[in-house]
Simulated assay, not measured.
Amino acid sequence: MVRKELQVMRKRIVVFVIAIVAVVAVLVGYNVFQRTQSKDSARISQVSRTNQGKSKQRPKKNGKVLIVYFSRKKGVSDGPLKIGHTKVVADFIQQRTGADEYEIKAANPYPKSFKATADRAQQEQTDDARPKIKNKLPNVKKYDTVFLGAPVWWSEYPMIVRTFMDAVDLNGKNVVPFTTHKGSGMGSAQNQVEKQYPDANVLEGIGIEGEQAENSQKEVDQWLSKIGY
C-alpha cells in the first residue's frame, strides 16, 4: 500500500515538474520572440528614418549642372586675392561635376576696402535691397542641378544673390547652397534657399572657411560624394 502511494506520488511529482518546465519554456520562448520582434521593429524604423533623411539628400536626377556664384577678390579681410574664395570652391565643384559656371557681377561694383564693403552690405540688408546684376541672367531650363554659392555677409547671402534668387525660378530642380565664411558656417543660406524654392529638391549645403578655401578640395569632394555627385 505504501509502495503504491509512493509510486503515485512520484508520478505526480514527475508530472508537476514536466508542467513547470513546459511553462518556463513557453515563457522564455515568448520573451525571446518579443525581444526579436522589438529589435526587428526598431531596425525597420531606423532604416525608414534613414531612407527618409537620404531622400532629401540625393539628387532627383543627376543631369546637367550649373554653378552660380558671387565672389570677391577685393574688399575682403584677407585680400586682395588672385581668386576669390567662393570662386575657388566653385571651381572645385566644377572639376568634380563638369558643370557650367555663371558668375554674378554687380552693376554697381562693391568698394575696394573691406570696411566700406561691409558697411554697404549691412545697409543693403537693412533696406532689403536688390542690387542690380550687371551680366545677363543664365537660362536655367536645361539644368537639373544648380549650385548656388557666395560669401556669408552679415550671417546670410549677400543681397545681390537675393536679386538672382528672386529673378530665377529654380523650383523643380536640385538646388545646392554653398558658402565661404569667416566662422559663421553657412549662416542662414540653407534656410534662405529652402524658403525661396519650396518645390525644389534642396540638398545639404556646405560652408568653407574663406582662408582655408584653397586647401578645401578634399572636403568639397567628400561633401559632393555624400550628396550624390
Rank of each mutant, 00 (worst) to 15 (best):
M1A: 08
R3M: 06
E5K: 15
E5D: 05
Q7P: 00
V8S: 15
V15L: 10
F16I: 10
F16H: 07
F16R: 15
I18V: 07
I18H: 10
I18N: 09
V21P: 01
A25H: 07
V28L: 12
Y30F: 07
K39N: 13
S41D: 01
S41F: 01
S45F: 00
Q46M: 05
S48P: 14
S48G: 14
R49L: 10
T50M: 04
Q52V: 04
S55P: 11
K56L: 10
Q57I: 06
P59R: 11
N62E: 11
K64T: 13
K64A: 10
V68C: 02
V68P: 07
S71L: 10
R72A: 04
R72L: 08
S77D: 05
G79D: 02
H85K: 09
K87N: 14
K87E: 14
V88Y: 00
A90N: 09
I93P: 00
R96L: 14
T97V: 12
T97R: 02
D100P: 09
I104V: 14
I104Y: 00
A106M: 02
A107E: 15
N108G: 08
P109S: 09
P109D: 08
P109L: 06
P111E: 13
K115W: 12
K115H: 15
R120F: 02
Q122D: 11
Q123G: 10
E124Q: 04
I133P: 03
N135A: 15
K142Q: 11
Y143M: 10
D144W: 08
T145K: 06
L148Y: 08
G149H: 03
G149K: 01
P151H: 01
P151K: 00
V152E: 06
V152M: 01
W153H: 01
W153L: 15
W153T: 13
W154Q: 09
Y157H: 01
F164R: 00
F164H: 06
D166Q: 11
A167L: 02
N171L: 11
T180K: 04
T180N: 10
G185I: 15
S188C: 13
A189W: 05
V193Q: 05
P198S: 06
P198V: 08
D199A: 14
A200F: 05
G207I: 10
I208W: 02
G210Y: 01
Q212W: 13
A213H: 04
E219T: 13
E219F: 00
V220M: 06
W223V: 04
K226M: 03
